[in-house]
């Protein structure tokens, strides 16, 4: 009796997600191989990967995501290290200050950067005011603006993930390393850093995948500069080219799944605690 009871509890959720998510996603991917309800056909993909417009957008998306990931790591790791070593009270305050932007609407956060880096924004006003530049800098509606916005979007996630990992490093380990003669830098390099590697990898996946597929930030800060997600939206809603939109969706899913699988394997492999 127990047996079917437990499946009964889980059935509604599985059914719901199957009907409303798994089937639509699966059908979307399958449909990309049947452009004219005829035989299977991969020529769409082939011609897409010869299309220079698409390749340029793909390259921009990849470049933006990779740079965002690197910048998040470079800014996030030291900050997380600092936060993790604070007293409990101070740590709580800093974490709250990190989590707050994380929970704030992405529209609000992208908008705030439009105010700052826009043509008449704060940065240009200030720079022109003190006479460093005569003409306003064109930052908004460039890939740079998108990177700034995405770093702002994903840095909190990076920091809290890394703080979580660093907190799980027992302080006895650090004391032990120091008592065995390691210097402060030695403790960091030989103990803290290796134990943080899985966290860095996981944080990295989250930021990369998030940036690769983010919509709001490039839509607001990228202007005419398309990335994959805005291209997908344009094809689906403006151009009504659902076949192209489906192909783009399939590419995004495949890339996401490949990256997540690879990085999961990597995180396990690099985990020194095994």
């Amino acid at each position: 009796m127990r047996n079917y009871y437990k499946y009964l509890l889980i059935l509604p959720g599985v059914l719901f997600l199957t009907i409303f998510m798994l089937v639509p996603i699966g059908m979307t991917i399958i449909s990309t191989f049947f452009p004219n309800e005829a035989a299977a056909d991969t020529s769409n993909y082939a011609s897409l990967f010869r299309d220079s417009y698409f390749l340029e957008i793909l390259w921009t998306t990849l470049r933006v995501s990779i740079l965002t990931t690197i910048i998040c790591m470079v800014l996030g790791f030291p900050a997380a290290y600092f936060i993790a070593r604070m007293s409990a009270k101070m740590k709580a305050v800093l974490l709250i200050l990190t989590i707050f932007p994380l929970l704030t609407s992405p529209v609000v956060r992208s908008f705030s950067w439009m105010v700052i880096i826009g043509r008449n924004g704060l940065v240009n006003e200030a720079l022109m005011g003190i006479g460093i530049i005569q003409e306003p800098l064109e930052i908004l509606y460039t890939p740079t603006a998108v990177i700034i916005g995405l770093v702002h979007l994903f840095l909190p996630l990076t920091i809290i993930t890394l703080v979580g990992v660093m907190e799980s490093i027992e302080s006895d380990l650090l004391t032990a390393a120091a008592s065995l003669g390691a210097s402060r830098i030695g403790v960091f390099a030989k103990v803290v850093l290796p134990l943080c590697v899985p966290g860095l990898v996981i944080g990295g996946i989250l930021v990369f995948v998030g940036s690769f597929t983010a919509y709001t930030t490039p839509a607001l800060l990228g202007g005419q500069q398309r990335v994959l997600s805005t291209l997908l939206y344009q094809n689906a809603n403006t151009l009504n080219d659902w076949h192209m939109a489906s192909i783009l969706a399939a590419i995004m899913i495949v890339v996401t799944l490949i990256v997540i699988t690879c990085m999961n394997l990597l995180a396990n492999k690099l985990n020194p605690r095994r």
């Binding site: 979307t28 689906a236 489906s246 969706a249 996401t256 997540i260």
Partner: peptide, 15 residues
């Protein structure tokens, strides 16, 4: 895990 934008598009298409 599935990109939100992909979910959005498939929801439009199927729902």
């Amino acid at each position: 895990i599935i990109p939100g934008i992909v979910l959005g598009f498939t929801f439009l298409r199927f729902f």
